[in-house]
Design a protein around this nucleic acid. Structure first.
Lengths: 239, 239
DNA sequence: ACCTTATGCCAACGCCATTGACCTTATGCG
DNA sequence: CGCATAAGGTCAATGGCGTTGGCATAAGGT
């Protein structure tokens, strides 16, 4: 057993590093998030993180089993941040909409981190809490279990899928290459209109649109569908 | 200029490697796809690829500017595979559905490769052809340009987003850890029902569902919306 | 005031991508 | 038909990466 990795709540001795900073799981994750924002999604390395924390890189292995484990912790922190201070209002549609937008926003707010962690099932506390919340909203609204399961699946997948896509496009242009919309324009607008007539005619309209997210629209369409389903279920169940 | 990288169509001398194999961009991409399938999405390295091709790793830099450039080529190959042999039938709904399903299927068929390349704008030939095709379907159906642009955006994003998500979950369980559905069950089914009652009650139903894709359903919902839009546009335009 | 052991540090290993210099051979031209 | 040229394969080296085992030290229960 080369790597015990004491769980956070069991930690007793907080020996400061050579330079005086006292480490903790939360501090490491925070620092990692900052490094991701500053150096891009490939800029998080054990060595750099150690440098930023004034600690030896190997120290990280006292807190996480490896960089992958740290990645999962970062993902869970994003979900936690998304639902921080949120409580269900009791109206299923409003609640579900809020959860979706919050999760999407949290990922998009940390695009470089999101790229690493979206589409990872962390199985950690905050993720479980979010799943429990969504399921509870639907069940409390009166949706039967089988429908709840189906709707939950679609909701989570759609939210995460758009979050991942939007985050990726925000995180992509690694350095100065971005110029966001300009980057897109420079790729597509200068194409020969004889070979790509449709792209050529659409390019001017496409450029500004491609930098916005389609998620809110998709979410509202999704909620309409849930509402229809819910009405059908309730009327057949108690006519 | 340290790296000229002769474009594929300009290549004249095809000097075989030490062991006799003759390299080409296509051969390299094919081999890379095979390696990705066999070794997982992180298993594609210049060294291993060189080994598999019986060539020095540095040889790759005669064909691609770097591993990132190779990645883009792999992505474009996937799109090319998706639309290989496809031609529009002239019915917009059927055509659009086919394009969406084909792209989604191509990515999901190479999950490890898809993880690397989804949400990358390659700007290469096959990708441009796909964009042109989608735009042409919508314009030919009679959709005005602004609506076409909006619908195109949503269509591409939704397709890629689901493709990325589904591919990621397929590529995830790096080795034997997968056991697909069992993996999911083992994470969620053994939770305390007092803290997570909704997850606990849903787990048995959730497990089988989470391993399927929600994309086809979402696509058909999307097409319904396009149809409605199209009808509105056509009637207002020629009453 | 000890003793244990958690926790930080060090040095080393084996990967990785990338590069510049070198060599060799396929090809186009005379 | 043969030669010059440069395309393209190879070599060796660089600097970064994650990760590990051994070691030192100080925190905390007793």
């Amino acid at each position: 057993m080369p790597k015990p990795v004491v769980p956070e709540e069991k930690r007793r001795r907080r020996r400061p590093t050579r330079s005086g900073t006292v480490l903790s799981e939360a501090l490491i994750v925070e620092t990692a998030l900052r490094m991701l924002r500053e150096h891009g999604s490939t800029g998080l390395t054990a060595r750099r993180l150690g440098l930023a924390l004034d600690a030896d890189p190997s120290t990280l292995y006292r807190y996480f089993r490896g960089m992958d484990d740290l990645t999962l912790a970062i993902g869970d922190a994003l979900i936690g941040q998304a639902l921080e201070g949120w409580a269900p209002a009791g109206e299923w549609r409003r609640d579900l909409r809020e959860v979706g937008l919050r999760i999407h926003a949290a990922y998009v707010a940390h695009p470089q981190a999101a790229v690493l962690t979206t589409s990872r099932v962390t199985g950690r506390a905050n993720e479980l809490a979010a799943d429990e919340a969504v399921l509870d909203i639907l069940r409390t609204a009166g949706l039967p279990l089988p429908d709840t399961v189906r709707v939950y699946h679609a909701f989570i997948d759609q939210t995460l899928a758009f979050a991942a896509l939007d985050a990726a496009s925000l995180a992509l242009p690694s350095a100065a290459l971005r110029a966001d919309e300009n980057q897109w324009r420079s790729t597509y607008a200068h194409l020969p209109d004889d070979r790509y007539p449709r792209i050529a005619e659409a390019a001017p309209l496409l450029a500004p649109r491609m930098v916005t997210s389609a998620y809110p629209t998709a979410l509202d369409m999704f909620l309409d569908s849930v509402e229809k389903q819910l009405r059908a279920d309730l009327s057949s169940q108690a006519p």
